[in-house]
Nucleic acid binder design. Structure first.
Length: 262
DNA sequence: ATGGCATCCAACGGATGA
């Protein structure tokens, strides 16, 4: 079984590329972020014709997440509120960034973590607040359920310096500032492991490259798209890799898909 | 580098991304 995560930066713009990629890769579960479309306008049919079940949670212009699965999902929910309650979720569910469902004995959690804009901005505070609620959300899922969990998506955080092409001076940069790294480490301390590092200990592997200034051709990248697994799933994983081929195409997403295989 | 490039809305410039 292969579970992929891919920030496509608009599913309507990237529709044909995602179709081509699915036709050439045997993906069982595809978690998408930044679909950027309301649910009724999501291009469902072409993906259903490929044999996928679609579960979407979108909004106009921004954010949006979706899960495609070969076998139907169960126990699906979107946003924080169904798991942590309305009080703790507050207004965070106005932005569509969370969708989850169960396949076989594995719960898939697909996340689009807020970008944060700049470390002295309101959006950065929003990112930290969102991560605090995410911790409660995952703690609930981990303690109330006995099944294994795969938490994947665009985290907009590079946890270690080796996840950045040039880490020097990045402590004041979003995606690598100490507060957001600490917030993510506290989430992983609940009992989740970065499966990419099971197979690839060295740095220099990235999942996002800036469109500007030739980021990709100069390999000025960041590894910010992740699969975090509970221990038994982590043990069962047989590979985890970043597929940079779609990033080389004309009019690509700025992110590459990341795949874990069991 | 308040830079670079891409996407969306419904403008033809502004917001957002990371």
């Amino acid at each position: 079984m292969k579970i992929a995560t891919w920030n496509v930066n608009s599913i309507r713009t990237r529709q044909q590329q995602v179709i081509n990629w699915l036709e050439h890769n045997s993906i069982d579960v595809l978690c998408l972020q930044e679909t950027k479309v309301i649910d009724k306008n999501f291009p469902q049919t072409p993906f259903e014709e490929l044999g996928y079940n679609l579960y979407v949670s979108g909004q106009k212009a921004y954010n949006g997440v979706a899960i495609f699965t070969r076998h139907p999902l169960e126990d699906i929910s979107t946003g924080f509120a169904p798991i942590v309650g309305e009080t703790l979720a507050g207004d965070f569910d106005e932005q569509k960034r969370v969708i989850t469902g169960v396949i076989d004995t594995v719960r898939i959690v697909n996340l689009y973590v807020p970008n944060g804009s700049a470390i002295d901005s309101d959006k950065y505070d929003y990112k930290l607040g969102w991560l605090a609620v995410l911790r409660e959300y995952l703690q609930k899922l981990l303690t109330e359920q006995t099944r294994e969990i795969c938490v994947c998506g665009d985290f907009n955080i590079a946890l270690e310096d080796q996840d950045i092409y040039e880490p020097k001076g990045k402590e004041k940069h979003i995606m690598s500032s100490p507060l957001e790294r600490e917030a993510l480490k506290q989430i992983l301390a609940l009992g989740l492991q970065d499966v990419f590092r099971k197979f690839t200990p060295e740095g220099g592997h990235f999942s996002w490259w800036d469109y500007r200034s030739g980021g990709f051709s100069r390999n000025r990248g960041w590894r910010i798209d992740h699969h975090y697994l509970t221990p038994k799933l982590y043990e069962q994983a047989i590979s985890c890799y970043i597929d940079i081929k779609p990033r080389k195409q004309i009019q690509p997403s700025d992110h590459a898909p990341v795949i874990v295989e069991f």
